[in-house]
Structure formats: structure tokens, C-alpha cells
Design a protein around this nucleic acid. Structure first.
Lengths: 253, 253
DNA sequence: TGAAAACATCGTACGGTGTTCGGAGTATTT
DNA sequence: AAATACTCCGAACACCGTACGATGTTTTCA
């Protein structure tokens, strides 16, 4: 897990809100901060979350490794800038079609962002990135639930629940998506490599999901396993409806 | 994200179910596999998820680094063994007090495991660790929802939703818990370092959460920010109730 | 106009990572 | 006694983030 919020707050907040001040003396900077951030996002998207390296980033930008540190205090701050930039690309929630459609849009946007930028899942949420885009999105999301009889603390709780669910379920989607590349074996290869051993072990000692199979002609390998991307996406929607139903119930009661 | 399921399936499944066969020739092994796994868990718990290093592990066990590779094919397989072992320490869900209490126990157990072993959050769930303990727990969880009129696919979906929510919300708890150590600043320091800049920025251009504050005397810093451990725990319970309510609604409808 | 100050650039080095290789030593089998 | 199969492990490889200090460039001011 990468943690944001490690460096000097003043410097970080200034970078987030104002960008990098032009040097008053000395040679001009050969890069722009936004180019650094964009290249970092592109590289992290392509190479996987852990594979963003200052060396490779510098090489792609045609610059020495150490030069990056004149733009950004360190990798943690660079990550904050990346988060803030991605937040700016997400469509703001639209309250005009009701809170439920709005919340669904927020979750869909988050899922899309997680899929496009899996490294987002590695950035801690407990030390919020206080950039303008991030804050605006959070504020607009809270506003969706305003005026429906929910206490403020419950508004925050419901939004947090949706966000937690989204993050967990998006994790499953992204992991399923990345697994073939990350492990070097497709879903089928992985599954078929393990089935014979599972069947061997199940024989007598571990009747896998026996209770359920008896109850309802429940074929494990058809419904529960293996985890594929499509299955993870279906579950995302199913669970999101579940959570939104629960929010609706909190309003009326 | 660390991915399980990378190595030779036969070898991995054998390790998970049978452990390490004693060498038929040559010198006796100076360690036992379970000792290696336990030490790895202890070290990962102590030093943080990313800080489990084969070198340090070997040193703690009083063994050369390369020797570890005679016990375990690599770090990925070691992680699988760690997951399986932790799964064995969790209390199995108890169906006797109803599905809701059972599911709540599962979530509470998962949360406890995530807090005690934060590295669990870094292990991908899409390539399930097919060990006896992991499978037994999953099976027992599914069984909780059996016989309440839910279609098999919906049972799987509900369990997946609870697990996704639990993972996401537990992430928030663990991140909040680890943040002070990981960043070197307490929640208060972090928050107070940023407040002045937020107030400066809010002045006019960004009325932070203005809509909500008008609506209900909603003090942002009291209810929504900063994220502390206690707040994350409260939210965990609130959201879990939300999700369980939704599961209950699916049963009756 | 010349010197000083402020700045960007970047080669190098430090201490860390997971894993591989090959040699040395040891216990069992033939 | 010899062959075999195994454990053990020092050293090396190719990486990582980042601190340091030398060098060169631009602006400012006396």
C-alpha cells in the first residue's frame, strides 16, 4: 500500500492547487509538471501499479533520474498528483435524475477509474488527497443524498458504505482482469490445472459445497468458480443494487 | 498486489494439503515448513505487508537466504501458505443463531484477520487459494444462506457482496490504523497541517461541503473528516448492517 | 560589466529487493 | 565403496527509491 500525505503539507498542497512555480533564476525547466504526471499515469497504467519507477519514468521523459526530484519531492507526492488528475477526468455526479442514478454513476465512474488505473487501489484512502477535483467529487456525492431525510452522519455513512463496497468489488474485477498477465496463465489454464487436485481431495474427505449442491442442483464450477472478469462485473452490479436498496430503505424508515 | 497461483499447480496444491515431504536422502531439513510459514506471518504482521523479505525471514530462522527455496518455490507460494494458515485460525461460521448473526460473524472474523494481518489485503482474491481451510470457510459461509429461498446464484452473489464490502471497509480501517506509522505523522498532525491550506482555498472559490452545511448544521471536520480508526470502525458496522438489510430484503421479496 | 545568487541537471552511490547458480557437504541406497 | 539425491548457502544479477555534490545556466544587483 502506498501512502499519500507523507511530505511537507505546504509543498504538497501548493503542488495540488497551484502546480509548480516557474523558477525565477537559473535554467528553464525542460519539462512541465503535467507532463511528468501524465507520463507517470501512462506508465503505471501500462506496467502495473508496482512497476512505476522513477528511473523508467525519467528515461521516458528523456531526463536524468535525479532531475525528477526537482519537479516532485518524491514518489508519494507524485502519486497524490496522479490521483488528483484522475479525479478530474471523472464525470461529476448528476443529481438531476435522482440520488439513486447519481450514486450509481459515481460507483460506475469509480469502477471505470479503477479499471483504467489499477494503481489507484494501492493508494491509501485514509489520508485523503485534498486536491480540488477530489474534493469537488466527494462534495457532489454527499450532496446527492441531501434532502431525503437522512441525518448528516448517515449521509456520510451511506456514501462511505458505497465507496467501500465499490472499492472491494472493483478490486475483484481488476484482479480478475490482471490475473492472466500477472501470473502468466489464463483463467482456464489456472482452473484446469487445479481441478484434478480438487477432485482428488474432495473424494470423501471434503465434499466441496455438498450442502448447496444437494439443496439446489448447484453446480459449483458453473456459478461460483472460477472467477472470471465477466463474473466479477456481474457481481459488481448485483452487489451495488443490494447496497443502494439498503440506502433507500434507510430513507423511508 | 501480490498474486497467488503462479507456480506449478501440482506442487502448490501438494504443499497446501500435505505439506512438505521429508527428504528421502541427504541431510535432514533443519526447519519445518510450518515454522517457516509462522515466521513469515509474524514478520509480515510486524513489519508491514511490503516488508516481508526472504532475506530477513531467513535471518530470523537462522538459515541462509537461498535455503528457504528448498522449502518453498518462491514468495508467491509462501503467501498462499500464509493465507491458508490464517484461514485456519478463524472461527467457522455458526449457523445456529441464524444466517444474519452468522454472516456478521464471518465479516467480523474477516475484519479481525485483516487487522491482524494487513498483508492479506495485498493478496489477490481472484486466484483463490485452494487450501482446505479456505475452502471450508467459504463453503460454510455459503451454507448460511441456504434454505431461505435464495437462488444459488443469488447466494453466491450475496456472499460476494458481503465479502467485497468487508474487504473495502476493512481496507479503510487498516489504512487508518497503519497511517501514523507508515507516514510518520499522527492523524492530528496530518489534519492540522492541511486545515490552514484548506481554509485558504475554501475562501470563496471552494465552499467545502457548503450544500450540506447549510442543510443541516453539518460540520465537516466533525463528521466526515479526518478519518480516524474509530470512525472507520463505526462506518464498518454501519455499512455492514446496510448490506445485511439488503440481503434480508432479497429473501422476502 | 562583472560577480554573486539561485536554480536545473544528473552521475554516482547506498542499502535494499526476489531469485538463480554452482559448489560444498551429508545422508541414504545400491 | 561408490553413486545418488538431497540440503545448505555465498555470491551475483538486475532491479528499486532517493541523497549528495559537482557542473552548468540564467537572472539579479552592485
Amino acid at each position: 500500500m502506498e501512502y499519500a500525505g507523507r511530505g511537507d503539507p505546504a509543498r504538497t498542497m501548493a503542488l495540488l492547487w497551484d502546480g509548480l512555480p516557474a523558477p525565477r533564476r537559473g535554467p528553464r525547466q525542460r519539462l512541465e509538471l503535467s507532463r511528468v504526471v501524465d507520463a507517470a499515469i501512462a506508465q503505471a497504467d501500462r506496467a502495473g501499479p508496482a512497476a512505476l519507477s522513477m528511473r523508467a519514468l525519467a528515461q521516458e521523459l528523456g531526463v536524468g533520474t535525479a532531475s525528477l526530484y526537482t519537479y516532485v519531492p518524491g514518489k508519494a507526492e507524485l502519486l497524490e498528483l496522479m490521483v488528483e488528475r484522475v479525479a478530474g477526468t471523472l464525470p461529476p455526479p448528476d443529481a438531476s435524475r435522482g440520488w439513486r442514478a447519481g450514486l450509481r454513476e459515481v460507483a460506475a465512474g469509480d469502477l471505470a477509474a479503477y479499471r483504467a488505473h489499477p494503481w489507484l487501489l494501492q493508494v491509501s484512502t485514509s489520508r485523503t488527497v485534498f486536491g480540488p477535483n477530489v474534493l469537488a467529487r466527494y462534495e457532489a456525492t454527499l450532496a446527492l443524498l441531501d434532502g431525503h431525510g437522512l441525518a448528516p452522519a448517515h449521509i456520510v455513512g451511506c456514501v462511505a458504505a458505497v465507496e467501500s463496497y465499490t472499492r472491494g468489488a472493483a478490486s475483484a474485477v481488476v484482479e480478475a482482469e490482471r490475473a492472466p498477465d500477472a501470473t502468466g496463465s489464463s483463467d482456464e489454464e489456472w482452473w484446469e490445472g487445479r481441478v484434478p487436485f480438487l477432485e482428488e481431495r474432495m473424494d470423501g474427505r471434503y465434499p466441496l459445497f455438498a450442502a448447496l449442491e444437494e439443496a439446489g442442483a448447484f453446480a459449483v464450477s458453473d456459478t461460483a468458480l472460477p472467477y472470471t472478469v465477466q463474473r466479477a462485473l456481474d457481481r459488481f452490479d448485483f452487489g451495488l443494487d443490494l447496497v443502494l436498496d439498503a440506502v433507500a430503505a434507510r430513507m423511508t424508515s
